[in-house]
Design a protein around this nucleic acid. Structure first.
Lengths: 124, 124
DNA sequence: TAATAAACGCAACATTGTTGCATCTGATTA
DNA sequence: TAATCAGATGCAACAATGTTGCGTTTATTA
C-alpha cells in the first residue's frame, strides 16, 4: 500500500480524534478530495485492519482509528461506542469492556456491537 | 390512524415473525405495495411506538414488532438483537437482558443498542 | 349516503455507495 | 537521475435507499 497524500491525511485525522467519523465528515474536513477515492481509501484501511467501521444509531456509517489505548490488537468489533443525541458525535469508548451475554441455545456469537446513546461529556 | 389494507398487512407480517425486517424485505413479501407508502407506514408505526427500528451490522435498516414477550412496554431500545452472518437475518432476542455498563465521567446513557453477530440457531 | 381528513401513489429529488475505465503518480530498478 | 509499472486517482455512470410535493382515492363519522 503506497503512502499517498490522501491516505496520509485520512490517517492523520482519524488518529488524532477519539471520534468515529463518517465519509462525508472526512470529505469536508479537507478540501479537494474525491469522494470515490475517499471511499476506496476507507475500504482499504478497513481491510488492512487499521480502522474499523461502526454504524451509528441513525444508520450513518462511521470509521474509527484503533489507537494504542485499544485493548484488543486483533480489532474485533467488541468495542463500545457512545452516540450523543445532541451533537450526534460518535465516541470510541476504548476502556469500556463489552459485557458478556447469555444467548439462547443454538446461537453462537463472534462479536458484539454495543452503541450507547445519550448525552456526551461535552453537551451535558 | 386508519386501518388500511397496507397497514394491516405490515402489522400482520411483523407480528408473526421474530425477525426484524427491512423495508425491501417487507416490500417483496407482498405484491403491489408502493415503496413510498411502505416507508410512511413504517415511520408512522415507529412514531406510534408500535414497532422499533434497528440498524443491522451491515447498516441495513430493519423494523421489528415488539410483542408481548417484550419485557419493556415503553419500547426503549434496550433490546438485544442477533444478526446472523450466514443468512443475514436479524433476530429480536426479547429475553436477553441488556447488560449495564460503566461509562466514563460526564456521559449519560438513555439507551443501549446491542447487536450480537454470529451464527444463528438455524444455520449452525 | 355524503363529507372530509387521512392515506395513497406517482414524479422528482437527495444521499450514500459502487464499478468501469482512462490517466496519473510513487516506489523500484537500471 | 531517469525509466518503468503496478497501484492510486478522478470522472462518468449507475444502483439502492430514503424523502417531499401534490393530486387522487379511501376509510371513517355524522
Amino acid at each position: 500500500m503506497k503512502a499517498t497524500p490522501v491516505r496520509l491525511k485520512v490517517l492523520e485525522v482519524l488518529s488524532t480524534t477519539h471520534l468515529a467519523l463518517s465519509p462525508s465528515e472526512l470529505e469536508s474536513s479537507f478540501s479537494k478530495v474525491d469522494r470515490i477515492t475517499l471511499y476506496r481509501t476507507l475500504k482499504d484501511f478497513e481491510e488492512a485492519g487499521m480502522i474499523h467501521k461502526i454504524i451509528d444509531t441513525d444508520g450513518v456509517t462511521r470509521f474509527a482509528f484503533c489507537n494504542n489505548n485499544c485493548p484488543d490488537a486483533t480489532h474485533t468489533e467488541d468495542h463500545v461506542h457512545f452516540n450523543c443525541k445532541k451533537c450526534h458525535k460518535m465516541f470510541c469508548l476504548a476502556h469500556v469492556q463489552t459485557p458478556s451475554l447469555q444467548l439462547p441455545d443454538g446461537f453462537t456469537s463472534t462479536g458484539i456491537n454495543t452503541v450507547v446513546h445519550g448525552i456526551c461529556k461535552y453537551c451535558s
